[in-house]
Amino acid sequence: MTRKGAVESAMRTVLLCAGLASLLIVAMTGIFILREAMPAFREVGVWRLLSGSEWRPGQELYGLLPMIAGSGLVTLGAVCLGLPIALGCGIFLAETAPGWIRGVVKPSIELLAGIPSVVYGLFGLVVLVPAVRGFDYPGNAGFGLLSASIVLAVMILPTIASVSEVAIRSVPDEYRKGALALGSTRWEMIRTVVLPAARSGILSAVVLGLGRAVGETIAMIMVIGNSVMMPSAMGGPLPGIFLSRARTLTGNIAVEMSYATGLHSSALFATGVVLFVLIMLVNSAARALMARNAGGGRG
């Protein structure tokens, strides 16, 4: 074998190992978390863990439903608040932005993605929590789902904006030209031709944003109140539920891990397993959507 060939095949092996390493790390993390969670699954039971509405480790009560509801609602709130802005941003960048504005907006969105989440949390704690406290509503102290949803909406904005921009950009130009030639205005073209063609790409942008939202930890701990309770509207109209305090799955682990032992610790690992499965579902949904998008773009 020539020297060149030897280097070539050695490099291929090195790269293969690097690729396999990431697979190995995911598998080992999963197995480790699952192993540590086994006592909780065995002693408390999977169903009781998932459906129990009381979390009182001091009395051996381990129900994750309040945290599942908390994570779900805060994610829903973040998508409702963040999606219109993020999608508008993506359309603007892909379709209507003049070059120089694009040159300013695009880097600033990328910068937004790079800000550490603890900084967002601090902003939420100092600015949003006192502002939300202004709503006169029973039990409202500013800490809760609304403050957390706003923080999270800003945090998922860069993901949704940039992925949906790429999706909109990948719509073939012939579609646009055709629509304009048929007499539609710019907005009609975007609404009736470009957005439907980029639909699955935009959907996968949203799902990626969801994944980011479900996993966020420190910023949530700082503004959501961390109370172990089923979020409720406290007797008021249903949207009042967002003024309720809550706790996320990630927050449950981070707040209690340092003091937990025995079954309590295992139940926190079980929380980790629930998160692991949730993120896996969200990511595979995103992959499936992107695969469909790639196929649809060519066809």
Partner: peptide, 10 residues
């Protein structure tokens, strides 16, 4: 028992 609606800080 401490009320479940309490704000918890670590």
């Amino acid at each position: 028992q401490i009320s479940s609606g309490a704000i918890l800080q670590a």
